[in-house]
Amino acid sequence: MNILDLRNVVKTYEQHVAVNDVSLEMPEGSVFGLLGPNGAGKTSLIRIITTITRADKGVVYFNGEKLNSRHPAEIGYMPEERGLYKKMKVGEHLLYLARLKGLSKRDAQRAIDDWMEKFYIKDWWNKKIEELSKGMQQKIQFIATVVHRPRLLILDEPFSGLDPVNTNLIKDEIAELNSQGTSIIFSTHRMEQVEEVCERIVLINKGENVLEGSVADVKQQFKENQFQINFSGELPGMLEEQFQIIRSENSTIVIQLESGDDSNQLLRHLIQSGVHIDAFHEILPTLNQIFIKKVGGNSDE
């Protein structure tokens, strides 16, 4: 079952096409990376999913149903630009947002208590938002996003502005929520985080879906048949006549194979020549490299 299913979604602002014919599928329970340079249309896409705006064309299915006004209660959205009512007290604020998501007062109270306990901030209930540091506010914002147990969680740059300790705290909570079945959309520029957390990604550029798939598949798709060998001993002479050497250092060498070549053949050749192989592995492109390769200089920035 797909938690989200976008079909040919188009959104135009004035003369500018923000989302151009995007289709994507997101399986329930997956962690999904929504990537793209600034101004690519990520936020526009998220706003359509969260029902903040409506698509001009195309259809969005949420859990098999056409997106409708009941669905926001099942979605938790943390925008990149955070905002809270500065003058409100932490407890009241969380209660307010939770109730707007449709929780009863009792359920909301209980859920908030649990979360505040989990984050060791029980005694913040009566503090005003403006008295909190930015990182602390971020925690409150996170609680506000998840308090109604959404089936789909949309996090836009969730770790920006957080110190490493709190980053880990939130990361663990996200993992925990995911293990309980929550589907998560993760929008970020930080590729190392995407690689760490996401199972699937979609890359948006200029409003279009330019790449979609599981992280492993995408990497396979963009690999360049490069192999790194750590060795001891002497490399056979004439190696460069048979193989293209990209880089060569004391005991490390990187070799580029032709697309049809078998890596075993390289390995066999090396072993036969008497070199001792310490490690042999394929160099897969990082998502960062793929991102830059795919978006290149075409980004709006």
């Binding site: 969260t50 029902t51 903040i52 006004s69 926001p72 209660a73 979605i75 959205y77 943390m78 925008p79 630009e81 955070r82 905002g83 809270l84 009512y85 500065k86 947002l97 707007l100 998501k101 914002q141 506000a144």
Partner: peptide, 16 residues
Amino acid sequence: EEKTTRIVEVMISSVK
């Protein structure tokens, strides 16, 4: 104020 503090985006993901 709601607009400049950006709370509005959170709000209208819950209400119209």
